[in-house]
């Protein structure tokens, strides 16, 4: 088995396809190529694709990740170009790198995600709202699950909230815990803030894993450096 890690973006109209749709779309795009994809065993063999973290419907993802197993090695740039020729506009592979087969999959490593909300007009009371959220000891929200509604405290899952100036107006950055160890959803945080109505301009900038006690992107960029250098330049090409 030859595992590769793909970094891709999902934007434009494609932000409206679900996570399940996305899995199917990649599976079919791969089948339209000659890339030697490894398949799962069993009754209904599926291409061995493991997505790092599902993205909510309607949210764009600038740096999303998936691990793909091939049955034979292939040059990274060939995988990227071949696959991009088959992906619909709005989905684009930005980078492919071979990973050690002993490495655990990204989905088990992802601990946080950075969400960005573009604010063409920054409401005056927003920063006050942010401060009071950050000072709160606990923030209970209702979450609907299969077993009915339950209340959970999302305060421990909010790592960072800040407003930054950018070319056009300002942006709200939210670094939130994600993955199996507990998470806060961007919509839950937004619902706690005084200003509403900016939900259509939200995107997920990147995902973060803990390495040596610090949060960094799967590619090894720390949160601090990400916010200073990469943030705002997450284009798809």
């Amino acid at each position: 088995m030859y595992p590769y890690r793909l970094c891709f973006c999902k934007e434009g109209a494609l932000r409206y396809i679900s996570h399940l749709d996305l899995q199917r779309t990649f599976g079919r795009a791969l089948r339209r190529t000659d890339i030697p994809v490894a398949y799962s065993r069993g009754f209904n063999p599926q291409p061995r694709l493991r997505f790092a973290l599902p993205l909510a419907l309607g949210v764009e993802g600038k740096n999303e990740y998936l691990d793909l197993d091939l049955s034979a090695p292939l040059q990274e740039n060939i995988i990227k170009e071949t696959l991009n020729a088959q992906l619909p506009a709005g989905l684009r592979v930005k980078n492919v790198s071979a990973v050690e087969s002993s490495q655990p999959s990204l989905s088990s490593l992802v601990q946080a995600a950075l969400y960005v909300v573009d604010l063409s007009v920054c409401p005056a009371d927003l920063s006050r709202g942010l401060n009071s959220l950050l000072q709160a000891q606990e923030l209970f929200v209702e979450r609907r699950g299969k077993k009915g509604t339950r209340k959970i405290d999302i305060r421990p899952f909010i790592h960072r909230l800040e407003i930054r100036k950018q070319e056009k107006g300002e942006a709200l950055l939210m670094l939130l815990a994600a993955g199996s160890r507990g998470s806060a959803r961007p919509q839950e945080v937004l619902a706690l803030l005084p200003a509403r109505g900016f939900k259509d301009k939200i995107y997920r900038a990147d995902l973060f894993v803990f390495r040596a006690g610090e949060l960094e992107t799967p590619g090894g960029v720390s949160v601090e450096r990400y916010v200073e250098v990469f943030y705002g330049k997450e284009n798809c090409d």
Binding site: A13, L14, Y16, I17, A29, G58, G90, D200
Partner: peptide, 18 residues
């Protein structure tokens, strides 16, 4: 976009399929 944001299954109406 406003419509896609509000309907339950926007993939029905995208028209951007392969």
């Amino acid at each position: 976009d406003a419509i896609f944001e509000e309907v339950q299954k926007p993939a029905r109406y995208l028209g951007r399929e392969i």
